[in-house]
């Protein structure tokens, strides 16, 4: 039931706008970013004294595309991945990756930058892998050999996300985004956070100019027809 609810919210927030996006709008720009990812905020013990995690700096790369419906609203699909990291045992590797799609409300500021208010959802995946072997560790009053995992395992979670982005006139933006895992479950609901800097490339500027011209001509033709009826 909880999963169905999460899936339904996911569908409404992500797939429905995407269905519209294929009919309307156009690509505003493409951007690539670097940042950091903090997982499980305040839920992980990080030292013997009992402190919990607040802010991690797990390196992250991202790529996204802005699909503008109009001056105020956009859809921004995004792929992000944390850099694979080695464990205390160098054989254990771990990384997370995300497929997200955010709706964005854009607010132009007086300094002519743009503030984006973001909300959406997607899929968060985490892969853990190791090539096997064993580790001798303390066990009771002696030691024992404990096997290490041999293979990989990937977890998948639907997530809802919300955030804010400021895009300056210099083709870069700064972004902060929170993610909610298992929204409908009080048992293991969790919050994560990503922040970063993105560089934007207006790869489709020429195409957009042509589309705008074509749309303007169509509108003018339509207005002319209505006016002369």
């Amino acid at each position: 039931m909880k999963s169905r609810l999460t899936a339904t919210i996911f569908l409404c927030l992500v797939l429905l706008p995407m269905a519209f996006a294929t009919e309307w709008g156009q690509i505003e720009d493409v951007s690539f970013g670097v940042g950091s990812f903090t997982e499980h905020i305040n839920q992980v013990q990080i030292d013997r004294a009992g402190s919990r995690n607040s802010f991690d700096l797990t390196p992250m790369l991202s790529a996204n595309m802005e699909w503008a419906f109009n001056e105020s609203f956009s859809l921004i699909p995004e792929f992000a991945i944390t850099l694979p990291e080695s464990g205390r045992d160098p054989n254990i590797k771990r990384f997370s990756y995300f497929f997200l799609a955010d709706g964005a409300y854009k607010l132009k500021t007086e300094s002519s930058g743009i503030i984006y208010f973001l909300a959406g959802g997607g899929l968060a995946l985490k892969t853990l892998s190791s090539s096997g072997g064993s580790e001798t560790l303390q066990n009771g009053t002696g030691t024992a050999s404990f096997p290490l995992p041999d293979g990989s395992s990937t977890s998948r979670n639907l997530v809802l996300d919300f955030g804010i982005k400021y895009k300056s006139n210099y083709d870069f933006s700064v972004l902060g985004k929170g993610m909610v895992y298992n929204l409908s479950s009080s048992r293991n609901r969790s919050f994560s956070f990503m922040m970063g800097v993105n560089w934007h490339w207006d790869l489709f500027a020429d195409a957009r100019v042509k589309t705008n011209q074509r749309n303007r001509i169509k509108r003018e033709e339509k207005d002319w027809i209505i006016k002369n009826k």
């Binding site: 670097v34 940042g35 950091s36 991690d56 700096l57 797990t58 390196p59 990291e85 080695s86 464990g87 205390r88 045992d89 254990i92 771990r94 064993s134 580790e135 560790l137 404990f146 096997p147 290490l148 995992p149 800097v197």
Partner: peptide, 16 residues
């Protein structure tokens, strides 16, 4: 930002 990046570490084992 790059100067601040750190690498975290993990390790876990099984009992079989």
């Amino acid at each position: 930002l790059l100067m601040l990046l750190s690498t975290q570490v993990w390790s876990f084992t099984f009992n079989n």
